[in-house]
Amino acid sequence: MATSLGLNALRLSLSVLRPSSCAVVPCQLTVAHKSHNATHVINYRRTRAEMAKAIRRKQNFLHFELVDKHRHSPLQTGTENISQETEVTAPRNYRYVMPEFMPRPDWERRDRVLEKLERRDMMRRRAIMNIPEFYVGSIMAVTVADAYAPSKKNRFVGICIDRGEYGLKAYFVLRNVVDGLGVEVMYEMYNPKVLSIEVLKLEKRLDDQLYYLRDALPEYSTFSFDMEPVQLPKGADVPLNTTKVKLKPTKEWECRWEAHDLQGVQPFEVNEKRMRRKEKSAEPWKKHDLMLDYRSRVPEEEEEQVMAEVFREKQVIDSQRKSMRTVLKKRK
């Protein structure tokens, strides 16, 4: 096979040789002779039939358009002008509404195929169970399947103090004080054990994480289990709760909060030693580090592309749910 290919290549190269490149002939010949021993010879000059065969879509082959949309290198011919099917663009703040759909910013560990598959699975889950929009600071109720409870269900109400991770592993943490005991539960949003997620009061807080509520007075994280959901007027912005919580007077907190630049905490004083320590551990240059900022985020084009896809699928799911509701109403 190798010899026939080599001869074929030689014949083709000879047939297209122009008079100006006659000097190259000996060189070409030597190459062809050498290739008799080589195991693999690349045939750059393919016949039309061969080209057609190579281009044909294969069953077990993920086409590069699906995977390699990110590679806009001018060196890669054929990848510069890929038609984008994104007529629908997501709203600008959509990445804050559904942050778990964002690709992981750590580009070294990214896997684009996995991301795409995960996004598909997440959307499938959302088609079955409604996951509402929520933020850190919203008061939520979660029902999980509990095989050992008499009602086979377990409902917990609390304030969302944290949310994180990307993809199917996305989680949030609820906190409440029950009978004087602070209780926190971490739920995975796409865990099949989670039966329903409700938002009782949609609002934001001044900080990204509210772990300082552990060291605040218990009244700030006490919520009734039979709380009625608070309805927001249609089209209204998500309200920002500017409550400033009061930390416990004992300074033996679980974290040195003075070093964390908290917005939602009433001003407090700590001793000189701790202030010195805070100054020593401060990293004021970090906010000017452009590369750090760049590495902690996904490129904007990619974000837009992903979010448009998510937005489109979400609209389909919402319309399906709406039509289902009207059908159910008519049946009644």
Partner: peptide
């Protein structure tokens, strides 16, 4: 820190 769906309390009880 506990598994998902398992509560973590503020004290060791």
């Amino acid at each position: 820190k506990q598994r998902p769906n398992v509560p973590r309390t503020d004290t060791n009880n």
